[in-house]
Amino acid sequence: MAELNTSDNGKKRGHNTRKPLRVDLTAMVDLAFLLITFFILTTTLKEPKMMNVAMPVDAEPGGVAASRTLSVVLGRGDKAAWYMGEIDKPVISPSVIGLDKGNLRKILLEQSARIKREQKKEMIVLIKPSDQSVYDNLVQVMDELNITQNSIRAVVDISADDVAMLKKDKIYN
Rank of each mutant, 00 (worst) to 15 (best):
M55S: 14
N137S: 13
N16D: 02
A160G: 05
M142T: 08
M142G: 00
D30Y: 10
M1R: 07
L104H: 04
G63R: 02
S95A: 09
A113Y: 02
V72N: 09
D169F: 07
R153N: 13
A160F: 07
D100F: 00
G102K: 11
M1F: 07
T17A: 14
K12V: 15
L41N: 15
T42W: 02
I127R: 04
L138P: 00
L74R: 04
P48D: 05
R18L: 14
R153A: 08
N146L: 02
E110C: 01
D162W: 02
N150T: 12
N146I: 03
K170T: 08
K128A: 11
L35D: 10
F33S: 09
V72Q: 05
L31T: 03
K121N: 13
L166I: 11
A113C: 06
P20V: 09
F38M: 05
D161H: 07
W82E: 07
G62C: 02
E47L: 08
K101N: 13
V163M: 02
A154T: 11
I171W: 02
R76D: 13
T26M: 08
I115L: 07
Q149F: 01
Q140V: 12
P61A: 00
I107V: 11
R117V: 05
N9L: 14
L35Y: 13
F39R: 15
S151I: 00
A164C: 00
K79L: 06
I92V: 12
R68S: 06
G85A: 02
V156P: 00
L25Y: 07
K49T: 13
S151R: 05
N5S: 07
L99H: 04
G62Y: 02
L74V: 10
K79D: 06
I171E: 08
I36Y: 09
S159D: 10
K79E: 08
I147T: 11
A2F: 15
M123T: 12
E3K: 12
I92H: 01
S7W: 05
K101L: 07
M1A: 08
F38D: 02
E110M: 14
W82I: 01
D169S: 09
V96L: 05
S7G: 14
G85I: 01
